[in-house]
């Protein structure tokens, strides 16, 4: 079959006659050139159109971060502690004090605007002492803290139990009472 191959030896490429004859056979190909080029172009266009992964994930990351912040703030809002109620005990004024000597009752906004040092419980009439007084942090806002109510004392307060503006800091009225 292959007597024509003999004698043989390696050529400059290192192939013998047998190898050259084998290599002369052309492999059959069913690969479609145009289809490959079309698919390659299609894939290139897709890869060019698609942004980098960091850019692709930028907006989802921002949206996720904002969602986490919103959920966290919602949870904090739902679990916010109830407003603290502070009770101020006011010493009853002496019965012998003539009512005519009492000054004009101060209106609530005036009380709210006064400082704690200038507050004089004797200036409040008996009927006003039964009304809860609410101090607003800001005008027109729902009170957050403090909420102060005036409650009549069941018994006369001692000097040590005097007017307490703050729980932790007993207010010393001094000579004002």
């Amino acid at each position: 079959m292959s007597s024509s191959l003999e004698p043989e030896g390696s050529d400059e490429s290192g192939l013998s006659g047998f190898e050259r004859s084998l290599g002369s056979l052309k492999p059959a190909s069913r690969v479609q050139r145009d289809r490959i080029l079309f698919l390659a172009g299609q894939r290139q266009a897709k890869s060019l159109k698609r942004p980098h992964w960091s850019a692709r994930n930028l907006w989802p990351a921002i949206a996720a971060s904002l969602a986490v912040v919103s959920i966290g703030q919602g949870v904090l809002l739902a679990r916010r502690p109830t407003p603290e109620v502070r009770t101020v005990y006011v010493r009853m004024p002496p019965e012998s004090a003539p009512s005519s000597e009492r000054p004009e009752p101060a209106s609530m906004p005036q009380i709210a605007s006064r400082s704690a040092v200038a507050f004089d419980p004797r200036a409040i009439p008996a009927v006003d002492r039964r009304l809860p007084l609410t101090f607003f942090d800001e005008p027109g806002r729902t009170p957050n803290s403090p909420v102060i109510a005036l409650v009549p004392a069941e018994k006369p307060l001692t000097a040590a139990e005097g007017l307490k503006i703050r729980r932790s800091e007993p207010f010393d009225l001094g000579d004002s009472l």
Binding site: S2, S21, L22, S24, L25, K26, P27, A28
Partner: peptide
């Protein structure tokens, strides 16, 4: 399956045998 080589009358070997 499909043939590995193209039929070539001028080749010294039969593609099917190869």
């Amino acid at each position: 399956g499909p043939a590995w080589f193209q039929p070539d009358a001028g080749s010294e070997f039969d593609p099917d045998i190869v």
